[in-house]
Design a protein around this nucleic acid. Structure first.
Lengths: 336, 336
DNA sequence: TTGTACGCGTTATCAT
DNA sequence: ATGATAACGCGTACAA
């Protein structure tokens, strides 16, 4: 079933049929009615391939998801999907391996699929610096800042991570914690890890708290398991820690498990803080104290920013959404 | 950059270029080499739209995800993605609202996108009965059985839910539990809920344990929050329950939270069992006892089944993968 | 307001 | 082994 068939059926030419189906002006009410009815009757759908081939563009927004164990991104993709569903665009999700280059992949997909724009949850600074110049479609970096990247087609939306982390650590310090450990991402590979680490250091320095990275910092991927292992490493190194700040909720939950397995109670013996505000955090025992970034807002703003760029001719915008410290049950004061 | 440009560049005709790019016979080594090099040099990609328009088919496998709060499906989609990435096919994920008709949506997408096949995580029996006849592409129902559905283009892969649930309840009974409550899905809408419910009832009946659904069964959607609320309802109805079986891990984790908030300890006061085997279950305190279905196997078998149908001419296959009862810390014996 | 005809980039058929 | 050319289904400039 093509517009040709529809044309034959209704007696109108393919031109008129096409105009009606695309809701264009210069068609009589009568033609519109006749054709729309005939189309509805046989459940007609325009052929997307022909359409896009002709128009030299797709109607798709692409989201490039890197690594899958990070629960935050799953939620984010779903929220993005909901938001895109409200528009006339279609969301295409492309998953890729954690340790491949997302920008290189994007370069390929741009040529292959011609998306109107791309959303990058996460995203690595070096990769962008190296190859992003080859992409001319508007893009948005989500959960990571692109403010200091020199690309006018790259917007970003993220929360003020380093500030939020700094305040969180300060809160811990206020509550009497002095021996604080960090479980975080590999700083040589992850911007997120790097920025959150800066927040930690700022707090430690401002308050004169000693912190030796090689001792008090444990590397981990963004998964329960990695959090577990990192916490075990920390426990083996010292039994003095009264608090552990984790750069992701999944790490924090793994860490809590490890602490528990080693006979340490949370928060009585060790306070644990996460980052992300995953909904599971409100249900575990104890409820997880965390820096929450609103997945809804992240999704909403990033989609909106991208749409503006696609539809208008704005320049790159770097938006910061608030991060909210959710003080719950996995942390306590240790003032005497 | 099109094959025409490539043709001009290399001096060969578009026909030869196309043959080389599609790895077809009847091309000289020399032509192959020249053209491949030129293509690589400018990062050439065939235009998918033109290709598919010409070939009258896509290269896509579609997965239709319904409802998003169900963590299991997120993991499943990712596992499916990994599996499909190993093939020459491309995975297209389409998310849809929990309470829309997935089959109607599929009918539309088949016309619009012409996928080679469709994967349905979950899926509702009534919807299939009503409209699946209009779909002729091969499909696979994942986590839900299609064995009793009369469609020769519908395969399925799931675990033996009712058996697994029955054994789980029997185990609870063996351990001395007599007052057992169930938190599960709405049986009038969900096949999964219906089948798991049957497993429960079979166990209760076989052992002469009284069970009154209107009293001892609490409805819930597949989310933490719903599990929490359902558990509260149960607690309000009776304080006699020594065990709660939940039809999903997310419900179980919500339930554990509710019990804890009401001063009940898990498993000392109440044992809690989940279903799915989500990885978070191994990290919460207490570790969650659960009926685990392997997401890996589910993904692998469903993709393989679909491929067989796409590539060969097999008939529908209904495969059952093992479910494994993971007895962990959220349950205990109450023998005196 | 409507119709005609060309071209988007590719594959495939048929000559050569 | 290679080249010319006709589709695939659609949008659109141009003519009527």
């Amino acid at each position: 079933m093509t517009i040709k068939d529809l044309s034959a059926q209704t007696g109108y030419s393919v031109g008129t049929v096409s105009r009606v189906l695309n809701d264009q002006p210069n068609v009589s009410e009568k033609a519109k009615k006749t054709i729309l009815e005939a189309a509805a009757a046989c459940g007609f759908q325009l052929n997307t391939n022909a359409q896009q081939l002709k128009q030299q563009r797709s109607n798709n927004i692409l989201v490039l998801v890197k690594g899958s164990s990070n629960q935050l991104f799953s939620s984010l993709v779903e929220a993005i999907q909901s938001r895109v569903a409200l528009t006339t665009y279609h969301l295409v999700v492309d998953y890729m391996d954690e340790d491949n280059d997302e920008v290189l992949r994007a370069v390929q997909l741009v040529r292959e699929k011609k998306p109107l724009g791309i959303l990058f949850p996460g995203g690595n600074r070096e990769n962008f610096l190296a190859h992003f110049g080859r992409i001319d479609a508007p893009c948005v970096l989500v959960t990571s800042s692109g403010a200091d990247l020199p690309f006018e087609n790259l917007s970003s939306v993220c929360c003020d991570e380093d500030q939020a982390v700094m305040h969180t650590i300060e809160r811990l310090i206020d509550l009497g914690h002095r021996k604080i450990a960090i479980i975080g991402g590999y700083r040589d590979r992850s911007d997120t890890a790097r920025r959150r680490f800066q927040g930690c250091m700022a707090a430690f320095e401002a308050h004169g708290i000693p912190f030796a990275p090689e001792q008090d910092y444990a590397n981990a991927r963004f998964s329960y398991e990695a959090g577990y292992e990192a916490a075990e490493k920390l426990i083996a190194r010292s039994d003095q820690y009264t608090a552990i700040f984790c750069m992701a909720d999944v790490m924090a939950m793994g860490a809590i498990r490890a602490l528990t397995d080693h006979g340490l109670r949370v928060p009585q013996d060790v306070s644990v803080v996460g980052f992300d505000g995953l909904s599971i955090g409100e249900y575990i025992v104890p409820r997880l104290t965390t820096v929450s970034q609103s997945v809804e807002q992240l999704a909403q703003r990033s989609v909106d920013l991208l749409r503006e760029r696609i539809e208008g001719s704005h320049e790159a915008i770097h938006e910061v959404i608030p991060a909210e410290l959710q003080w719950r049950e996995s942390t306590r004061s240790i003032e005497k």
